[in-house]
Every structure is written in structure tokens, then in C-alpha cells.
Amino acid sequence: MTDMEVELLAAALRRDSADLSLYARVLSANLADSLPPGAVRVKRRRSVVERVAGREGAVAEVDVVLGEQRLSLRTDRGGVSGEICHEVRGIVLSRREVELDEWIGALARALAEAAASNARAREAVERFLT
């Protein structure tokens, strides 16, 4: 994937980030549907009303594991925090907190790298670009 294609993917990932709760819900659903099982973990925050109504609740955290990189996005009280970890066999070797824009760029690069060798990751990239 060229640098221009990675930038297009990052722009597509950024497209709906103004409404953070909607962004986290759509992003987590698209990634979970497109990437291999276990690559995406979603934690939800459910109020009592949501539990009683049988609703899923709001996305509290999205973890995307691609290769040796784990990208975590957390939403809390209208804010968002991102974290990029270098992880080998479940052991975190480095951890860095980042702003949403940098997190999206790192996700785009990780998806592009995964798309080079994995058909499901390639489908995820195509889904975001169309």
C-alpha cells in the first residue's frame, strides 16, 4: 500500500470522529466484522436501563491487535484517549498514550500492513475506503 493510500484510509477512519460515541460504535463494529476473530475486543458500559432493555450499551474501549501492535481507544464522559502498545506474546514492551488523530494514523498504517498479507484485513481496508 502506498503512502497516499494509507493517508486515504486514515481520512476515511477520521471521517465520523466528531461524535465520539457513534464513532466508537461504528468503528468497533466494522473492525470486528472485518478482521480475524480475536483481533478486536470491545468493552461496553451498560447502565441499568440498558441492561433491563436488553441493549448492548455504549462502547467504553476498543482494542485492536494487529501483529505486535495493540491499539486501544477508550471513551469516557465525552472524551477519548488512545494508547499504542508494542506487545509480544501477551507481554507489553512499550506503551504510549496518544491523541485521537495519531491513534487513527497508527491504525491506518497497521491495517495497511496487515492488508498486504491477510485477505480479511484487506476487506477491512476496502470497506473503509468505499
Score class of each variant (00 low, 15 high):
Val62Ser: 07
Arg127Val: 07
Glu126Gln: 06
Ser21Ala: 14
Val62Lys: 01
Val26Gly: 14
Gly82His: 01
Lys43Pro: 01
Gly79Gln: 15
Leu93Ala: 12
Glu68Thr: 14
Ser21Leu: 15
Leu100Trp: 06
Arg89Asn: 11
Gly78Pro: 06
Ala12Gly: 06
Leu8Pro: 00
Arg96Gln: 09
Asp33Leu: 10
Thr75Ser: 11
Phe128Lys: 06
Ser21Met: 15
Arg25Lys: 14
Glu7Val: 03
Arg70Met: 14
Leu100His: 10
Gln69Leu: 14
Pro37Phe: 03
Ala121Gln: 04
Asp76Met: 15
Arg44Phe: 03
Ala112Gly: 09
Ser34Gln: 06
Leu129Asn: 02
Glu113Pro: 11
Ser17Gly: 14
Ala39Phe: 01
Val42Leu: 01
Arg127Ala: 11
Leu93Met: 13
Tyr23Trp: 15
Leu31Ser: 03
Ala10Tyr: 14
Gly79Trp: 14
Asp33Pro: 03
Ala110Pro: 12
Ala32Pro: 06
Glu113Ser: 09
Leu22Val: 15
Arg120Lys: 11
Ala60Ser: 10
Arg46Tyr: 01
Ala11Phe: 11
Val48Lys: 05
Val40Tyr: 00
Ser81Trp: 10
Ser117Phe: 11
Arg44Met: 05
Leu93Cys: 08
Arg14Asp: 12
His86Gln: 13
Trp103Cys: 08
Ser81Cys: 10
Ile91Ala: 13
Ala106Lys: 13
Val40Asn: 01
Ala121Ile: 03
Ala18Leu: 14
Pro36Gly: 06
Gly38His: 02
Arg109Cys: 11
Val65Met: 06
Leu31Asn: 07
Ser94His: 05
Val92Thr: 14
Leu9Thr: 00
Leu20Arg: 15
Glu99Tyr: 12
Val6Met: 04
Ala124Glu: 01
Ala124Asp: 03
Arg74Leu: 09
Asp3Asn: 04
Leu35Gly: 00
Arg45Tyr: 08
Arg96Tyr: 02
Pro36Tyr: 02
Leu66Tyr: 02
Arg70Glu: 09
Leu129Ala: 03
Glu61His: 08
Glu97Val: 08
Val40Gln: 00
Ser28Met: 06
Asp63His: 14
Ala18Ile: 13
Leu31Cys: 08
Ala58Pro: 02
Phe128Asn: 02
Glu5Leu: 01
Leu107Lys: 08
Arg122Ala: 12
Leu31Lys: 04
Thr2Phe: 00
Glu83Gly: 07
Ala11Glu: 14
Arg127Thr: 07
